[in-house]
Nucleic acid binder design. Structure first.
Lengths: 160, 160
DNA sequence: CTACGAGTTCAAGCCGGCTTGAGGTCAAGC
DNA sequence: GCTTGACCTCAAGCCGGCTTGAACTCGTAG
C-alpha cells in the first residue's frame, strides 16, 4: 500500500487530523516524510494507531502508551510493564464490578437509605469508596485512625 | 453526634477541605449552618460523601452524581437511572476485560509484532479500540469528556 | 499563470475537578 | 484587648488531551 496523507489516515482510523498532528508532536507516531508541507504516513501507522487506541480505551495516559510502545520501530513492549498494566486493569475491573453490583442492588433494594442496607454497604466497601466508613451513622470511632493515616496521600477517593 | 466543622469532616473522610467547599458550591453537599464564618456539617454528610466517592470511583461525573443523589434529603436515586449506570459500567467492564486479556497475551506471545498475533487482534477487536468509543471509565479525569465530546463521525477504522 | 483547496504552524482555548494563593474575618486563649 | 490560627472568599492556575482559529504554503487543475 502506498503512503498516505493525513486525510487518508484520518479517514481510515477515525482519528481527527488535529489529533494525528498532536500525536506526532508527542512522539507517538511518526510521519515518514513530506510532500511539500504535507505529511506522508506509512500504512504501518494504522496499526500503531490501533495500539494507541487500545491503550486509551484501557484508560492509559498517552505518556504511558508512549513508554510501552517506545523501544520503537516494532512496538516491542516490555513484558513486565505489560503485566503490571494488566494487573492494574484487573484492580480497576474488580472495583468497577463492585460498584456495578452496588448500583444494581440499590436500584431494587427497599431500604429507605442505601446506606442502611448491608449489601449496599458491603459493595461500597469493596469499591474502595469505603475508606469513609460509612457505618450506621454514629459509629465511626475505629475508622478514624486509618482514614487519618491515608489522609494526605492522594486527596483521596480518586482511582488510581 | 454533634455537628462537625470542615476540618473534622475532612479528617474523617480524607476529602480535603478545598474539595468540600467545592462540592458545596456545586450543590453536592450542604452545610447546615455556620459558626462565625465556619461551616458546620451534619454527620449525615459523611454518608453522602461516601456515596459521592462511590460515584467518582465508578467514573461518574460530579454532575451525574448530583443528579442521582439529587431528589435530595434522602439520597433517593431513580431506579432506571441506576440501572442505566450499572449497564454502562457493565460495558466498560467488558471492554476493560478484553483489554486486560490483550495485554496479558501480548506479554507472553512470541509474535514479533502484536498485531501479527490473531489472539491479540481479536482482543483488540473486542476491546472496541477500533471504534474509539470510550465510555466514562473512571481512572482519568478529563479523558471521558474529551473523548465523548468528539461526536464527529468516526470513519471506518480498519485495524486489521 | 493563477486560483483553489488541502495541508501547514503556532498560540490559545476548553473541559472537569480540583488546588493554590492572596487577603479578610472571627472565636478563643492569654 | 490583642494575638493567633483556623476558616473564609474569590480569582486564577494546573493537568491531560485535544480542538480551534488565524495566517500562511504548496501541488495541482483549468
Amino acid at each position: 500500500m502506498k503512503d498516505m496523507d493525513i486525510a487518508e489516515v484520518s479517514r481510515r482510523t477515525g482519528v481527527p487530523a488535529s489529533t494525528l498532528r498532536y500525536y506526532e508532536e508527542k512522539g507517538l507516531i511518526a510521519s515518514i516524510g513530506r510532500r511539500g508541507l504535507s505529511r506522508l504516513f506509512d500504512p504501518a501507522v494504522l496499526e500503531r494507531l490501533a495500539l494507541i487506541a487500545l491503550g486509551r480505551a484501557g484508560g492509559f495516559a498517552l505518556d504511558e502508551i508512549s513508554a510501552m510502545l517506545r523501544p520503537d520501530g516494532l512496538p516491542k513492549m516490555d513484558r513486565g510493564r505489560l503485566d503490571a498494566k494488566a494487573n492494574e486493569l484487573d484492580h480497576t475491573i474488580r472495583r468497577l464490578t463492585a460498584i456495578r453490583e452496588a448500583l444494581r442492588h440499590a436500584a431494587r433494594c427497599p431500604a429507605a437509605r442505601p446506606m442502611e442496607c448491608p449489601t449496599f454497604r458491603r459493595a461500597v466497601r469493596l469499591a474502595g469508596a469505603g475508606r469513609f466508613e460509612v457505618a450506621p451513622i454514629g459509629s465511626f470511632k475505629a475508622e478514624a485512625v486509618s482514614v487519618t493515616r491515608r489522609k494526605r496521600e492522594t486527596g483521596d477517593v480518586r482511582l488510581e
